[in-house]
Design a protein around this nucleic acid. Structure first.
Length: 510
RNA sequence: GUCCCCGUCGUCCAGCGGUUAGGACACCGCCCUUUCACGGCGGUAACACGGGUUCGAAUCCCGUCGGGGACGCCA
């Protein structure tokens, strides 16, 4: 029970193989739809479709503090934008719903009681503050931060006493004190973790919501998930999940941990160093087929065309890198995936996108333009910003070019306020960025968060707004700032500010 | 700090015991061209290091080093 030293028995694997393939992605609605979600989504989609299985979309909204109400719909839209469809999910329903974890809290409560009853989980009454203090002191002492297990063996009387005090509790997983857990990663083989390196993970928070670990195991079981295809960052918590499956007496799914997408410096892809919002790519004019193609390139699951194919189809050598979703369905091979974390290289993405643009017929290209940057919807939003400011229609381009350009980089004479230093101004720009990241994307919210920041930092509204105007429009003159930001979109706005700051911090030549 | 994963051109991939280590992006040069881009041709550029195993290692094993991830009442 506590130790697993051999592979699953043949009985287990044969019964496993007989189950119809079911996979899922489980994004969390905490902000913009993430490029990593699309990557893992694509892989899951391919995996299911190649095996005649089902692809499930489940929303993991158990963190009330990070919940963003607009996020779920953006996730649906973004995944549809790149061309993925799912068989079951909150929007399309299905036999294993509900597909939103916030609607499944009764289920989690019922199942965690089983764990409490069979002694594989326990109540723990420390406050978040106490735990944080403990973590800090462990970190300071260069010790691995871990729960000290103080409440692992509370008596019924002690628990009753805490509860009588009205102290809130969390429920933790009781990881066996000794032994180890081994599980199979389908890409890497067996991985073993010693139990003294596995923490007593919180399973149920004091607000009654489950953590990912609990909800994910229960839902994957209840939803009959056969293969868990997720990012590599989950490897180190997989032993906890395995322990949970065992505590419930459930059959394990297969685990496939995909290499993490990386920034140029090889760290895990992050918004500070790379645009990660799918909205950014959509709004900046990347074609969904190009994005999907590019994600398919990451990890190397696509076989290169054989010499025969190159000859018979008259392919150019570069066309080994260009393929559609149907071609991925046909050729993508999970056993080919290479484990080194692929750098998400914008330069190659842009090249690919250019290939797709050039491949379109003139009519198709026109249609693409008309449905994106020159759509009726977009122009309808832009028009009111400039109508009163125009004397001739020809001035439209002069006034709105920043909305249609990628390379906007004002000179210092434009963005630096008269009474400010360069360093202070850049610092303030970073604070604007942080404020805007947290803001809901409407004029009232943006206005409020900018003004709040200005007051805190002693920046006048004029200086504050003018700096942002310069960064976004490249000029001291522009259509009304807040309305322009709305039209321009949150993802592109944030990216433009980040790029401005990054550019200004570059060592100056001459 | 502890544990886990990974390691072929700058980047993405090929290679799965015997190759002049291949392709793509990027970069450089030449051609095409009124410009730019596209396109064509060519070029620079990698097996992290050290031990094994083997007649023979980029390929298998071990170690070192390097990179990454995890260590939350986040997912």
């Amino acid at each position: 029970m506590t130790t697993e030293t051999s592979a699953p028995t043949s009985h287990d694997s044969s019964s496993h193989a007989s189950r119809p393939t079911r996979v899922r992605i489980a994004p969390s609605p905490t902000g913009d739809p993430h490029v990593g979600t699309a990557y893992i989504g694509l892989l899951n989609y391919l995996f299911a479709a190649q095996r005649g299985g089902k692809f499930v979309l489940r929303i993991e909204d158990t963190d009330r503090t990070r919940f963003v109400s607009t996020s779920e719909q953006m996730i649906f839209d973004a995944l549809k934008w790149i061309g993925l469809r799912w068989d079951e999910g909150p929007d399309v329903g299905g036999p294993y719903g509900p597909y939103r974890q916030s609607e499944r809290t009764e289920i989690y409560r019922e199942y965690i009681q089983r764990l409490l009853d069979n002694g594989t989980a326990y109540k723990s009454f420390e406050t978040a503050e106490e735990l944080e203090a403990m973590r800090q002191s462990q970190l300071a002492a260069k010790q691995p931060p871990r729960y000290n297990g103080a409440h692992r063996e509370l008596t019924a009387a002690q628990i009753a006493a805490f509860e009588a005090e009205g102290r809130p509790a969390v429920i933790r997983l009781k990881v066996p004190a000794s032994g180890n857990t081994t599980f199979r990663d389908e890409l890497r083989g067996e991985i073993t973790f010693d139990h003294n390196n596995v923490d007593d993970q919180v399973l149920l928070k004091s607000d009654g919501f489950p953590t990912y670990h609990l909800a994910n195991v229960i839902d994957d079981h209840l939803m009959q998930i056969t293969d868990v295809i997720r990012a590599e960052e989950w490897i180190s918590s997989t032993p906890k999940h395995v322990l949970l499956y065992k505590a419930f007496g459930w059959e394990l799914p297969k685990f496939w941990h995909m290499p993490l997408l990386r920034n140029i410096d090889k760290s895990k892809i992050s918004k500070r160093k790379n645009p990660v919002s799918l909205n950014y790519y959509r709004d900046s004019g990347y074609l969904p087929q190009a994005m999907l193609n590019f994600l398919g390139l990451m990890g190397g699951g696509m076989a290169q065309p054989t010499e025969q194919e190159i000859v018979s189809k008259g392919l150019n050598t570069k066309e080994g890198d260009i393929f559609s979703l149907p071609e991925m369905l046909e050729k993508y091979d999970f056993s080919r995936i290479s484990l080194g974390g692929p750098v998400f290289d914008l330069v190659k993405l842009k090249w690919l996108n250019g290939e797709y643009i050039r491949k379109q017929s003139p009519d198709e290209f026109f249609a693409t333009m008309r449905s994106t940057i020159f759509s009726d919807e977009y122009l309808r939003a832009v028009a009111p910003l400039v109508q009163t400011r125009l004397e001739t229609l020809g001035q439209f381009g002069d006034m709105t070019s920043f909305l249609f350009s990628d390379n906007v980089m004002p000179p210092e004479s434009v963005w630096l306020p008269k009474k400010r230093e360069t360093a202070d101004t850049l610092k303030f720009a970073e604070e604007q960025l942080t404020a805007l990241e947290a803001a809901a994307w409407d004029t009232v919210s943006i206005d409020a968060s900018l003004k709040k920041l200005g007051e805190e930092k002693q920046w006048s509204v004029k200086e504050n707004f003018m700096l942002l105007r310069a960064i976004i429009s490249g000029s001291t003159q522009s259509p009304p700032l807040l309305e322009s930001l709305i039209v321009f979109g949150k993802a592109r706005t944030l990216d433009r500010i980040r790029r401005f700051i990054a550019f200004q911090k570059l060592p100056k030549r001459n």
